[in-house]
């Protein structure tokens, strides 16, 4: 299952720079970034091509970091593309905690990435419903 880095950061100038600096120095490539903000602080989420290495590097710099399992699903880049999968999630009573998406091939393919409480359960359901899930290797090499 793929992972992303969740990093605790204060909501102040220069905090992202510090983290991206460590990541760049470690020759790690960022595939996607999101920030959830809770006022004074937030969580920076990085999808990178080598999350384990990124995790170790950040940890060694005394940064509060965690590797989180994520689900990455291929969806069609068309009207209603996201709606198809959200319908399945609702039918199976799966709650999405945090998500983002990006286009991999314009007008053809996009990836929907999200976190859930029970990723294995969600993966099994999505596979059964015929969705194509990206492995960690596939995802990191996009």
């Amino acid at each position: 299952m793929p992972h992303q880095l969740s990093i605790f950061a204060e909501n102040k100038p220069g905090k992202i720079e510090k983290i991206t600096g460590i990541i760049a120095e470690g020759q790690i490539n960022i595939r996607a970034v999101t920030i959830s903000d809770a006022g004074d602080y937030g969580i920076i989420k990085l999808l990178v091509d080598n999350p384990e290495r990124g995790f170790e590097l950040l940890k060694s710099e005394n940064i509060a970091v965690n590797l989180k399992e994520i689900i990455a699903v291929k969806i069609e880049d068309k009207i209603g593309g996201l709606h198809e999968i959200s319908k399945v999630l609702r039918e199976n009573n799966i709650n999405v905690n945090d998500s983002y998406g990006f286009i991999t091939e314009p007008k053809k393919e996009a990836v929907f990435i999200f976190q859930v409480a029970d990723p294995i359960h969600a993966e099994n359901i999505l596979k059964k419903e015929g969705f194509s899930l990206l492995s960690d290797r596939e995802l990191y090499l996009i």
């Binding site: 969740s6 605790f8 959830s36 809770a38 509060a64 965690n66």
Partner: peptide
């Protein structure tokens, strides 16, 4: 300061 080992990447947990 947040103790780094106790961080689980969850914003609700921080709140």
């Amino acid at each position: 300061e947040l103790y780094s080992k106790m961080f689980h990447g969850d914003i609700k947990e921080l709140d």
